[in-house]
Design a protein around this nucleic acid. Structure first.
Length: 379
DNA sequence: TAGTCGTGGGC
DNA sequence: TGCCCAAGACT
């Protein structure tokens, strides 16, 4: 067997030799100079309160700056201190997080605030180990917070840094395969004298110049040093492994109304997808099963009640990270039996007017809107 | 280690 | 339209 390309280990060894020859001091100088003139102005930039920096770092996980800004500002008005967050109830916290996604971030933020109050007298910890012990904070977020709040010399490795480093060093494999080695690069590159500005600068570079698609290399302070640019491979890096098409789950959903005109909603289990949020009950349509049969079965299994299915309300297609759903939503009428939360934390009958008090996932908001539209049309 | 975990922007 | 991707953490 002959190989078209060198073995992976040989290739990575050559890569390591190559990136270690980069001129670190020069890279630091040029980046910091660029940052001084071209850095972004952001609400949390220049902030020294570790609580506020922490909130911004959590919100920014896998979420774009533009999306975060309004949430960040509302959050600090509602929960201005660690104490105020710790004392809030989880539903209030999730309502404030509603729409941001990855809801474990909101739940962990709440838990961590309580931990900080109990274990650190309400003061955000400054020791790396203690910060890493807080739920929802990994190595990148810890480095981001401690470098931004206290100028501690800790490297980061977020999506921006991975992309920038993959291009700067012409990484011959997808970043995911060599995370440990990329941490070493990030640590070697970090400016130990100005870790705060350096980390902010490299993220700004990734977010505004070294873009995922069509990077503007002509504006890049690292153009002269960049191995990807030298090889005209900036549009091919970082490498990525092709992903399989997302599976589609078909779901039957019931909007169950009682004689008082109230609607039955349930609160999802604490762990897992959309944990702690409210929803309209329903479940997966089994092969060969009709939507109506599915809904009747799911409602019996989840709530132990009998219902009548009235009419189709709306169909919703929604994409999550690892699958897609097709929601077939039907208006239903409560029949008999006392509803029990057999597969949820809690259930409740609510008026349409009260439903805004509860945090719902995005796909369910479309159902609520359809109910509002229908109520308005019948008026 | 590879899956799980949301939503919106941008093309 | 459908797909990639975003200041990742957790199991």
């Amino acid at each position: 067997m002959s190989r078209a390309t060198p073995p992976l280990k040989t290739e990575l060894a050559a890569w390591q030799v190559q990136w270690q020859q980069l001129d670190w001091p020069q890279l630091r100088r040029s980046l910091l100079n660029w940052y001084q003139h071209q850095g972004r102005s952001l609400p949390w930039r220049g902030e020294t309160d570790p609580y506020k920096i922490w909130i911004s770092e959590i919100m920014l996980q896998q979420t774009q700056v533009k999306t975060v800004i309004p949430y960040y500002q509302r959050w600090l008005e509602q929960f201005p201190t660690v104490q105020s967050l710790a004392q809030a109830d989880q539903q209030t916290v999730l309502k404030a997080w509603e729409g941001l996604g990855y809801y474990a971030r909101g739940r962990n933020l709440h838990k961590a605030a309580q931990q900080i109050c109990q274990q650190h007298q309400g003061e955000f910890p400054r020791q790396l180990e203690q910060v890493l012990a807080l739920p929802g904070i990994g190595r990148t977020t810890a480095g981001g917070i401690l470098s931004a709040a206290f100028n501690q010399p800790l490297a980061i490795l977020d999506g921006n840094v991975k992309r920038v480093l993959a291009r700067l060093t012409a990484l011959p494999v997808p970043p995911k395969q060599v995370i440990k080695m990329l941490w070493a690069v990030s640590e070697a590159l970090l400016d130990p004298q100005q870790p705060h500005d350096f980390n902010q600068a490299i993220m700004d570079l990734g977010a505004t110049v070294c873009l995922p698609k069509q990077p503007t290399c002509l504006l890049c302070p690292w153009q002269q040093a960049c191995y990807a640019y030298a090889d005209h491979r900036q549009n091919q890096l970082p490498m990525r492994t092709p992903s399989a098409p997302l599976p589609v789950k078909k779901i039957g959903v019931a909007v169950i109304r009682n004689a008082a005109g109230q609607i039955l909603i349930d609160r999802r289990l604490e762990e897992g997808l959309l944990g702690g949020l409210w929803e309209f009950p329903g479940g997966k349509i089994e092969p060969g099963e009709t939507v109506e049969a599915c809904i009747e079965r799911e409602i019996r299994e989840e709530l132990d009640i009998a219902i009548a299915i009235d009419e189709h309300l709306i169909t919703i297609d929604h994409a999550y990270t690892h699958f897609k759903v097709n929601l077939q939503v039907y208006l239903c009428t409560y029949g008999s039996g006392e509803p029990k939360p057999l597969e949820s934390q809690e259930i409740r009958w609510v008026d349409l007017d009260q439903i805004d008090e509860f945090p719902f996932p995005k796909a369910n908001q479309q159902i609520i809107q359809a109910l509002r539209d229908r109520a308005a049309a019948n008026r």
